[in-house]
């Protein structure tokens, strides 16, 4: 992906987020050295204070856009990046902080901050793709370590990363977990949620709570009917949809529909 002999330059950027996805990068214990060997980590304040100027071959972007300053900064990053990969629910859908999108952020600020006057924020939290062209999205809260390694490995080997956009059910069945909805009557967002987590929650007997956001063709109306048949009130489904991916279009529109 770069001229022979030079390592690709990687930058890791942070917007409104908890840093958990960046930590997933550092959590790649077995692969971390190989990744650092294969790439020049040019900008990654979470890991190193050393800083190499752009342009960058790959930018990993964590976090959502919640301030006017960030809305400008993401354009600068895009200009300096050959490939821009968003990582995590905040960057790909707006994150849990996008709950403000269905509320009045000005009402919330005094409840949260002792000195509201210092807070300068947008009315909404929006994903990076609402502002600039994004080349690849890694979903999740946090992202999956194996999907991150797969992405880096693919980029270093000039191949397309394999990031399925099918449902969590595909992974759940692959690991042999009996369906918690069918066998236990447990409400589960798995059928409408994108795979990537390895279907962790159902493997521990609980329903998926959608942290990887909507799958490629989510049938929200059918899922809502199923949850009602399992005895779930609409208000509770709305709460389930309004978490880490509250602003992902399919979840956002379904929860709006259910509160209408």
């Amino acid at each position: 992906m770069t001229s022979v002999g030079s390592k690709p330059k990687l930058a890791v950027w942070k917007f409104a987020s908890c840093d958990g996805c960046q930590l997933t990068f550092l959590d790649c214990e077995d692969e971390l050295l190989a990744m650092a060997e294969g790439m020049e980590i040019a900008y990654f304040p979470e890991a190193t204070s050393a800083e190499v100027e752009g342009p960058y071959d790959v930018s990993l972007v964590e976090g959502s856009i919640t301030t006017a300053h960030d809305a400008e900064r993401i354009h600068e990053i895009r200009e300096q990046s050959r490939l821009l990969v968003t990582i995590g629910a905040c960057a790909t859908s707006g994150g849990i902080q996008a709950l403000r999108n269905v509320a009045d952020v000005r009402e919330w600020i005094p409840l949260v901050y002792a000195t509201p006057g210092f807070i300068s924020t947008l009315e909404t939290s929006t994903p990076i793709a609402d502002h600039v062209q994004v080349d690849l999205e890694l979903r999740g809260c946090p992202i999956s370590k194996s999907q991150l390694v797969e992405t880096v490995s693919a980029l270093l080997n000039a191949r397309r990363p394999r990031i399925p956009t099918t449902s969590v059910c595909v992974e759940c069945k692959a690991r042999g977990t009996p369906c918690v909805a069918v066998a236990e009557g447990t409400p589960c967002l798995g059928p409408v949620t994108q795979s990537g987590c390895g279907a962790i929650c159902p493997a521990y007997g609980r329903g998926c709570y959608g942290c990887f956001g909507p799958m490629e063709s989510p049938n929200m109306a059918a899922l809502a009917r199923q949850w009602r048949e399992l005895g779930v009130e609409n208000a509770d489904l709305v709460r389930a949809l309004r978490t880490f991916n509250a602003n992902a279009p399919a979840f956002r529109d379904a929860s709006a529909e259910l509160t209408r």
Binding site: S167, V170, A174, C179, V192, A221, A222
Partner: peptide, 22 residues
């Protein structure tokens, strides 16, 4: 209107054989 396109039917089907390679 009802189908979730989740793929559960093909996963539990004892004859569905479609695979991909990675």
């Amino acid at each position: 209107e009802r189908c979730l396109t989740c793929g559960n039917c093909t996963a539990v089907c004892p004859t569905c054989f479609c695979t991909s390679v990675e």
